[in-house]
Nucleic acid binder design. Structure first.
Lengths: 121, 121
DNA sequence: ACTCGTTGTTCACAAGTCGGTCACGAGGGC
DNA sequence: GCCCTCGTGACCGACTTGTGAACAACGAGT
């Protein structure tokens, strides 16, 4: 048995994360993450705009569809769940960064890098 | 780019599983598995897409042929039977992973390596 | 034709997971 | 301090998945 490389479009890469939206599969350093439907949709929504700040409203619309009622904490809760699962596989990495008052940003840097250098980009 | 398993000589390999679709034979660490026709077809369908999540609908179509009626639990039942037989031969391994809401994935890694025993989410 | 073992299918209940919400606490800005 | 935002554990109803059991269909052997 051998393996051959295959080009697959529609995949998203963010650092050591590989996300296959069509399939519902996310890999962290090659290991499959066991994500629920909501968790996966949230990860996809963040990954599609990796590196940029995405507001809660926009995330809510992407994942739940429709406008977010004020006071709804669903996005926060699912960000927390997603962080937990990512952290279990890649303990030294931080992917989801909070920008208080603005939203969340997916980026593969350790959080300490944010305070050493620039936040732009 | 990623890699996918390719059958060079008509055989499929997934971890210590060796599957010969033409012969109807499946070996686990060299030992033959006693599988029924349905069980074998399901294993082949999963093995052909090893490492990826395969939906129930697709598995049903591969094994039974034709669309799955909603509420049909045949796939679940046969996954359970297959797991039982694999486990008898390779007790420490877990091959068939459930991705709730998505489908099943065949992969030779023990699930506890991924989650340290807890899969809460 | 009868019996025996096997298989495929379906059912029913058990077990587990998910999604949504709440509550409480930490931390920052004023 | 007070207010606001955010993180997260806990809870619970709804849903999904796991699996033993029942049973009919089938084939092989006698």
């Amino acid at each position: 048995m051998r393996t051959v490389p295959v080009a697959v479009d529609g995949m998203l890469h963010v650092g050591e994360l590989e996300i296959r939206p069509d399939e519902g599969l996310a890999l962290a350093s090659g290991q499959a993450l066991m994500l629920s439907v909501r968790e996966f949709a949230l990860l996809v929504a963040l990954a599609r705009r990796a590196g940029t700040i995405v507001s809660r409203e926009e995330l809510y619309d992407s994942v739940w569809g429709g406008p977010m009622r004020s006071g709804d904490r669903s996005v926060d809760v699912y960000v927390s769940k997603l962080r937990g699962k990512l952290e279990r596989v890649l303990p030294d990495r931080r992917f989801i960064h909070t920008h208080a008052g603005f939203g969340y940003r997916l980026h593969p840097q350790p959080s300490r890098d944010l305070y050493n250098g620039s936040i732009a980009g």
